[in-house]
Structures are given as structure tokens and as C-alpha cells.
Amino acid sequence: MRLVVDLNRCQGYAQCAFLAPDVFAMHGEESLLYNPLAEEERHEEVARAVAACPVQAILVEADPSAEAPRTRPGGDR
């Protein structure tokens, strides 16, 4: 499960670290470190963190099957 946190928005409230401690962790007083490729099993915790974040800073890929890049013979690798 791909995720990214908009750290300009993040206020270090740490709700996410509380709700999904395997994915989000505070580093020092208010820096957030997260695992950008969380395990699928963490789906529910992550969803809870997304919902709880007071500034909606967490983006999780909406649909995991959203897109396998369509390639073109010769062009892609």
C-alpha cells in the first residue's frame, strides 16, 4: 500500500503514530517518519490514521489496482 504524507500540512499531532504505530512514528518532538510502502495487512490501521489526521495530510493510493503502467513495445523498459 503506497502512501505519502504532505509534511507541509502535517502538524505532528501524532494521531497516526498512535493508530498505526507500525507505519507512522514520531522522530524527535514533532518530525514524522513513515513507511512509504506499508504492508497490506496494515490497511485498516492506516485507514483509521487517514481518517483521524486533523489536517488530512495522509494520501493512500485509492485503488491498488489503479494502474499497472501501460507499456509500449520498444519504448519502455
Binding site: 512509504p36 510502502l37 493510493e61
Partner: peptide
């Protein structure tokens, strides 16, 4: 492991590399 999550499908032709 840092591939960006997609906001939506973009149905693009990718010419990567």
C-alpha cells in the same frame, strides 16, 4: 519503496527510461 500513491488512474502511455 517510495513510489508515489496515485490519486486516480491516468490511463497514460508511459515512455520510461
Amino acid at each position: 519503496h517510495t513510489l508515489l500513491p496515485r490519486r486516480r488512474a491516468i490511463d497514460a502511455e508511459w515512455r520510461l527510461g
